[in-house]
């Protein structure tokens, strides 16, 4: 009897999120002020250091927004783009708003990233598959089962900045950010700047093949 009761509770817990399904349509409305930096189709704007959001995993986006809100991300000295983002959270006052906007963004098609000049794709492929692909997927498509975001389609400057932020401890140091800490451990895995460029070129090429 007790076991049956536990199963009911467990079952209820599993079903519960469906009862509060994110409202993507409302998310689209909430997104309006964000477009000033991230673009009308959430395609990003490298000139403003605003990354692509379209097509990103909703769980990842919602987690990052909560991290910005809590100061887990964007509060470190030196993360100026992160600080800018932290100052712009007013349109998303609560968890429901965050989940809704994340759901809307995830529903948009991911854009194609510009090719990376000078990148050696063969070396990039070797290093990507050896260091990154086990979590971020063979084609940089991301893997929600491992909480690893999509990388294909993100602009190379943003990716390089985040990689360096992880390596420098501007991101991925907070105890509450377990997945960020995982990434920080991999942010020294590439031997140098040339290989980083090659890997970024490989990632960009993945978005062009879709």
């Amino acid at each position: 009897m007790w076991r049956l009761f536990s199963l009911l509770i467990l079952g209820g817990a599993l079903v519960a999120p469906a009862g509060f399904a994110a409202d993507a349509a409302r998310g689209g409305t909430l997104y309006a002020p964000c477009a000033a930096c991230h673009g009308a189709q959430a395609q990003g704007n490298p000139a403003l250091q605003a990354p692509v959001l379209a097509g990103q995993d909703a769980g990842y986006l919602a987690r990052q927004l909560r991290h910005f809100r809590a100061g887990i991300r964007g509060a470190a000295d030196g993360d100026t783009a992160g600080a800018t983002m932290r100052a712009q959270l007013a349109p998303l006052p609560d968890d429901a708003a965050i989940d809704d906007v994340a759901a809307w963004l995830a529903s948009l098609p991911a854009p194609r990233a510009a090719a990376v000049e000078g990148a050696v794709l063969r070396t990039g492929s070797n290093y990507y598959q050896s260091k990154c692909g086990a979590c971020h997927g063979a084609r940089a498509e991301g893997n929600p089962a491992l909480f690893a975001p999509r990388l294909a389609g993100l602009d190379a400057d943003y990716l390089a900045r985040q990689y360096r932020n992880f390596a420098a401890g501007l991101r991925g140091t907070e105890p509450a950010d377990r997945y960020g800490r995982q990434m920080r451990l991999m942010a020294t895995a590439l031997p140098g700047e040339a290989e980083l460029r090659d890997v970024l070129g490989f990632i960009a090429a993945q978005s062009q093949q879709e």
Partner: peptide, 16 residues
Amino acid sequence: YGGRMVGPPVQAIQAL
């Protein structure tokens, strides 16, 4: 350790 043979690299497993 740092590459893909059949399973994921040990380095990634350590991070996870």
